[in-house]
């Protein structure tokens, strides 16, 4: 398991997300959205940010270079800005 600090745009705190090396960034983003759902619901397309840069969602956690206790962000994609509940 790879524990990562996830920050969802619109949320009030950082959460620990347990991932694994082969998980895609899309799955990682979904896991964070699910963990934050009591406070915020982000619908529509999102962008996963790794080290401040938008990353390809099809990359795996390992391919994106994420290591234990790294930070990643999930932000609304510009086109779905209205999707933040």
């Amino acid at each position: 398991m790879v524990p990562l600090y996830g920050f969802l745009e619109g949320d009030t705190l950082g959460l620990l997300v347990l991932a694994h090396d082969g998980m895609s960034l899309r799955e990682l983003a979904d896991r964070l959205r699910s963990a934050a759902i009591v406070r915020v619901e982000v619908t529509g397309d999102v962008v996963v940010m790794v080290r401040g840069e938008a990353a390809d969602e099809s990359l795996t956690v390992a391919e994106a270079g994420l290591r234990a206790l790294d930070r990643f962000d999930v932000r609304r994609a510009p086109a779905s800005a209205q999707g933040l509940a």
């Binding site: 950082g14 959460l15 620990l16 963990a35 009591v38």
Partner: peptide
């Protein structure tokens, strides 16, 4: 029902 369950940082 209105509570977080994930570990927080």
């Amino acid at each position: 029902g209105v509570h977080g369950t994930s570990i927080v940082g």
